[in-house]
């Protein structure tokens, strides 16, 4: 009888020590994917659409013509499958990444916006990704870009 009591106490002690010293691995916090169908870039000053995809198959303006040395401040707006905007600012786990085949164009993301910078003249292709922590929720098609030499630019900066 006393042995059984001792056994019970022992089991409780072991259980308690297991709980106290148990693994401290945190529970992973999973944030939902962004259900994105299209990506729209607007000029930050005028709010005019600078470039956008349609059904994520094509860009509205291809090739995109830029001027050497220009920096365009753009507001990226992902659209869901109903065409409704996905709020990027409230999602700290999402970012808009940019890739350029050549080094003459670079995308520099900022909070809620980004800079598309034409570093040097020449042609390249760029694409953008809605990046969710470790993977892309959306990858746009490649967009042809022509960067004109500063002297050849006719458009106002």
């Amino acid at each position: 009888m006393r042995g059984a009591t001792l056994l019970k106490q022992g089991v409780r002690l072991v259980a308690a020590s297991c709980l106290l010293t148990a693994c401290e691995h945190p529970i992973a916090v999973v944030t939902p994917h962004a259900e994105v169908a299209d990506l729209v870039f607007s000029d930050s000053a005028s709010a005019v659409v600078f470039m956008r995809t349609t059904d994520n198959r094509a860009w509205n303006a291809s090739p995109l013509v830029l001027c050497e040395g220009d920096t365009h401040t753009l507001v990226p707006k992902p659209l869901d499958f109903r065409g409704m905007p996905v709020d990027l600012v409230s999602r700290r786990d999402l970012e808009i990444r940019g890739e350029s085949v050549q080094a003459n164009v670079v995308w520099e993301p900022l909070r809620g916006r980004g800079w598309l910078i034409a570093l040097a003249s020449g042609t390249t292709r760029v694409r953008f990704l809605v990046w969710h922590l470790t993977h892309a929720d959306l990858v746009t098609p490649w967009l042809d870009v022509q960067v004109q030499p500063r002297a050849a630019c006719t458009r106002p900066r």
Binding site: R2, G10, V14, A22, C23, H25
Partner: peptide
């Protein structure tokens, strides 16, 4: 006699449990 057996059993169980806990939570390999 039973008490001695029970204590011995408890001792073994605790030693085994400690080894399991230490082994399982060692920081992921």
């Amino acid at each position: 006699m039973n008490d001695v057996r029970a204590q011995s059993l408890i001792g073994r169980v605790m030693a085994a449990a400690s080894l399991i806990v230490l082994g399982a939570c060692g920081g992921g390999g």
